[in-house]
Each structure stands twice: as C-alpha cells, then as structure tokens.
C-alpha cells in the first residue's frame, strides 16, 4: 500500500487527474500537433522529458526561490531545457528536429509544464516531482495519440504515414474527411474523449 501511495503522482495523471481532459491544460498543442500520429508521438516524448527534468530542477531549488519571481524562475528553467532539447535534436537527430521545428519551441508555452511546476514541484520532493512529470507527460501523450489516431485515420486514411484505408473503399465512393485535418476537429475529438471518460468516471461529473 505504501509503494502504491508513492507511485500515485505517476498513475493519477493517466486517467483520474489527466492534464488534458480533466485539468484542461495543454489544449493548444493538442490542436497543433495531432493532424498526424508521428509528430504527436515525438511531442509526447519531448514534453515528458522536459517536464520531468524541469520538475526535478524546480523541486531541488524550491526552498531557495524568492516567491515574487518564482514564475520567472520556472520560465527560465523551462526555456533553457527546451533550447537544449532543440539544439541536441538538431545535432544528433536532424531529421526529427526538422519535422518538429516549430513544435519543439511550443513546448515552452505548454500550460501543463508551468501548471505542474507551480502546483506540484514547488511543494514536493524531487523524486515525487520526477514521477509527477513522467505521469503528466504520459497522460498528455495518451490523449494526443488518441486524437491523432482518429484525425489521421479519418482525415488522411493513413496511420504513421502508411495507407490503411484500402483502395477499394475509395473506388466505392469513400472519401477522406478533409475537415479532420483542420484544428477545430481536434477540439471536437477531445470533447468526445471527455464525454466517454466522464460517463465512465461518475465521480468526476459536476
């Protein structure tokens, strides 16, 4: 039971306290990177890495940070980490960094990161903060991947860039839904996920 309790920061964000569908954070990037599965997946990995590291650093510094400038300190740490991730990708994995050029920079503006730093890392020990970062990154990623799955499947007829809707469907009049590629459909897909999630978790209903 004790072990379970210490792992709560890791497990809770996956469903009961999911950053996207319960805390409603990070919606902006959920719209931007979910037209295809691949960027959604790499974005998940990048956000998880930045969030876990930033959580640990802020948690280590939490007793020294002056309250009046704590948001600025958090921002500086996050921005520095994102720039480092960007530079490392450019040097070691140029192809991926090209595909994600804009999205990497967008991590800085991801509300989840600031939200977790302020709400969790500022008042918890480093190990718990690390787990919280991983958990929230993955909780964010699950939603991203689900949304990207439906948007890519219905919008382009592909998954990870491979054609999955067979050609005979198109010959019998099936058409890709171009609207799924546009950002508003991400909101509607997220709303559908929230609907399903709430109806299964009655205690979250208001």
């Amino acid at each position: 039971m004790n072990v379970n309790k210490s792992l709560l920061p890791l497990i809770n964000p996956l469903s009961k306290d999911n950053p996207v569908i319960v805390q409603v954070l990070g919606i902006c990037s959920a719209l931007a990177v979910t037209a295809k599965l691949e960027p959604a997946l790499v974005m998940t990995i990048s956000v998880t890495a930045v969030l876990a590291l930033a959580n640990v650093i802020i948690s280590l510094l939490r007793n020294t940070i002056p309250t009046s400038i704590r948001i600025i300190v958090q921002l500086v740490v996050v921005a520095a980490l994102v720039v480092i991730v960007d530079q490392v990708l450019k040097a070691w994995n140029y192809e991926v960094s090209k595909a994600l050029s804009v999205f990497i920079g967008l991590i800085i503006t991801n509300c989840i990161i600031m939200g977790r730093l302020e709400a969790f890392a500022m008042s918890n020990r480093p190990w718990a903060s690390f787990l919280d970062g991983i958990g929230n990154g993955l909780g964010y990623g699950i939603i991203l991947v689900i949304v990207a799955f439906f948007r890519e499947l219905l919008g382009s007829g592909t998954l990870f860039g491979c054609q999955v809707i067979p050609q005979w469907c198109y010959e019998h009049g099936y058409q890709n839904n171009g609207m799924m590629i546009l950002p508003p459909m991400a909101l509607i897909t997220v709303a559908c996920i929230i609907w399903v999630h709430r109806s299964r978790n009655k205690d979250l209903q208001e």
Partner: peptide, 8 residues
Amino acid sequence: HQGETPGL
C-alpha cells in the same frame, strides 16, 4: 517547405 499545413 518550412511549415505548410500537414496533409494539405
């Protein structure tokens, strides 16, 4: 391209 709409 630098940032044209994915899929379009």
